[in-house]
């Protein structure tokens, strides 16, 4: 049986809310540099798995919201989210049929694109990020991808959303 629209969007919404909370949850000291791009990861999952429900428009809106949350330049995260999700939606079939380790590798590349866009915009705005640790989140995102994938797939099957 197919789930109603309300439950579909509440599951997607809740997962995104969790992503947002994890984005600003305080971590001790240098751990902060390791924080994966939670919102982007959750959005990528839904874009890959449910392209008819979640599209790049939602990714753009979420990016705009992240700009408000971080107080970064207006449109910075919006642009990064938009382009990354666009690339992801183009290769979603390849990602879906790949084994999990290859998926994680592709996710690392996508998050790297996301970070490069942020890096460039920051640089153009006159704040060049000089720390090499800035690039670590793409690695942690890839490492955590199998876990996120498994959790979100479990909730997707549990609530029967397609």
């Amino acid at each position: 049986m197919k789930a109603s629209n309300i439950s579909v969007y509440s599951v997607i919404g809740l997962s995104l809310l969790l992503g947002i909370i994890l984005t600003i949850w305080p971590l001790p000291g240098t751990m902060n540099w390791l924080r994966p791009a939670w919102v982007m990861l959750v959005t990528l999952y839904w874009i890959i798995v449910l392209p008819n429900r979640v599209g790049i428009k939602l990714a753009w809106l979420l990016g705009l919201f992240l700009d408000g949350l971080h107080g970064s330049l207006l449109g910075e995260h919006a642009l990064a989210c938009l382009l990354t999700s666009y690339f992801a939606s183009n290769i979603r079939r390849q990602i879906l049929v790949s084994p999990l380790w290859l998926q994680a590798l592709m996710i690392m590349l996508l998050i790297l694109i996301y970070q490069v866009i942020l890096y460039l915009v920051q640089g153009f705005a006159g704040q060049v990020i000089s720390s090499w640790q800035y690039w670590l989140p793409s690695l942690t995102s890839a490492v955590l991808w199998p876990v996120i994938f498994a959790l979100l797939r479990a909730s997707k099957q549990r609530f029967k959303i397609y």
């Binding site: 600003i24 949850w25 305080p26 971590l27 971080h70 107080g71 970064s72 920051q122 720390s131």
Partner: peptide, 13 residues
């Protein structure tokens, strides 16, 4: 507020 922004932005809320 006990929240963290991106580490490359030197800000507090």
């Amino acid at each position: 507020l006990v929240i963290q922004a991106e580490p490359y932005l030197s800000q507090i809320v």
